[in-house]
Write a protein that binds this DNA or RNA. Structure first.
Lengths: 224, 224
DNA sequence: ACTAGCATACTTGTATGGTAGTGTGGTAGA
DNA sequence: TCTACCACACTACCATACAAGTATGCTAGT
């Protein structure tokens, strides 16, 4: 290690974050082959932290390693995506019910502020910002309900969907209708109506079944 | 590596499985310190695969590594346990609803057979066997509903609870009442009654809130 | 007796060399 | 031309050496 201790923690974390970001952003597309040696030379670190980052990425199922042959960015598995979506729907349905019981005024305000910004982004056709605000909206509900850690676990499982979402952004999917659903959810939480809130959440997350078939046809090499 | 390629896959997996088993079975109790060198000498492998196993265990939150200081078996975090239980309840509630829609005769039979063995184990006070059959019962429902992978993810998150369950076995918790609940669930699935099935599942998993306070008082060093 | 400071023996983090399995392209032989 | 074979380049896996941070205990100085 020379002078590049700019990365706050370990070299391993630095490599992991760099690769993960590159994969989720599709800069490294599904199917692309990479090797420990290649990455270690690019990032100017030894093979050990690269190898350890590879192991973590394999755990995240973002990377596939074939011993003595090579490694490649995992293809998107639609069955996998659906499993993650299913689990997320169950979890967030339970979380929003909790929110209807125990939500503080402070978090109500945060949600309302978030929705206000969503409308602004929608009216300005800023779908990238909408993507970020959507994520933040769901995180806020979980945090306000005291289930931050559960939300984080779900997020970690959801990486395949995130890559799919990036693709659907490129194809100009209609994100705008989501804003109204978010607004209705806030209303249900304020009214402390768990049944209504749960139903809204389930419908909302069911919409995340993008036009997968169209995406698969447009990017056939990215799927398995 | 000498002649101990008895472990089917890699040395890394061999070390990982060995340590994981030792931790979950409490052979390596929470708080115990271990080092890479120590384990590598015990298992007669080099530090590299041991280190890689350590990394995976850290991901599982079964091991805590303090750089340049040492590593120790993670203490049981009751907040963590509750989060995992919550997520499991949501997931399995959704899964058993699916089971009510799309369960084959073959899987009904497997469940009934499983319950029969549960009764036998109950009548013979074989709580260890009951523990295994209970796990298998839930796995069968998920598999029959086509959600095997979801179940596996939940399991992976549930390691802290598994250690707690081992403790409660040692304290002779009453596992027997669970058998009746299982039997009722099978009935509900056969009747294709999702509301009833879901309610039974939620009550069932709520029971998994063991007498945590008592356990914490009996084994104070195991908790944080 | 007490304390500051350093030597030392640990720990994990990183770098590198060697091993064994795998794919590929070229070459010798029919 | 076709095929069997082999050398070679490539991979990830494992072992080992070295670097760097941390805790501990001894020692010198007060």
């Amino acid at each position: 290690m020379l002078n590049r201790n700019k990365h706050k923690n370990s070299t391993r974390d630095f490599v992991y974050e760099a690769l993960r970001e590159a994969i989720v952003s599709l800069e490294l597309p599904p199917g692309a082959t990479i090797s420990e040696k290649e990455i270690s030379e690019e990032l100017e670190v030894s093979r050990t932290p690269v190898r350890e980052a590879f192991l973590r990425l394999t755990e995240d199922e973002l990377l596939t390693v074939l011993p003595q042959r090579g490694s490649y960015i995992s293809l998107i598995d639609l069955d996998h995506v659906e499993d993650a979506r299913f689990l997320r729907e169950q979890a967030e349905a339970g979380i929003i019910r909790l929110a209807c019981e125990s939500f503080s005024e402070a978090y109500i305000s945060k949600l309302e502020k978030n929705v206000k910004y969503q409308k602004f982004a929608r009216d300005n056709d800023d779908e990238n910002e909408l993507f970020i605000l959507d994520k933040e909206f769901h995180r806020l509900i979980a945090e306000g309900a005291g289930k931050t850690r559960v939300w984080e676990v779900i997020q970690k499982m959801d990486t395949h969907s995130n890559r799919l979402r990036k693709l659907s952004l490129a194809m100009k999917l209609n994100w705008k209708k989501l804003v109204n659903q978010h607004e209705e959810m806030v209303t249900a939480i304020k009214a402390k109506d768990p049944d209504q809130a749960e139903q809204l959440m389930r419908e909302h997350l069911a919409l995340l079944i993008y036009d997968q078939q169209a995406l698969k046809e447009s990017y056939p090499d990215y799927f398995n």
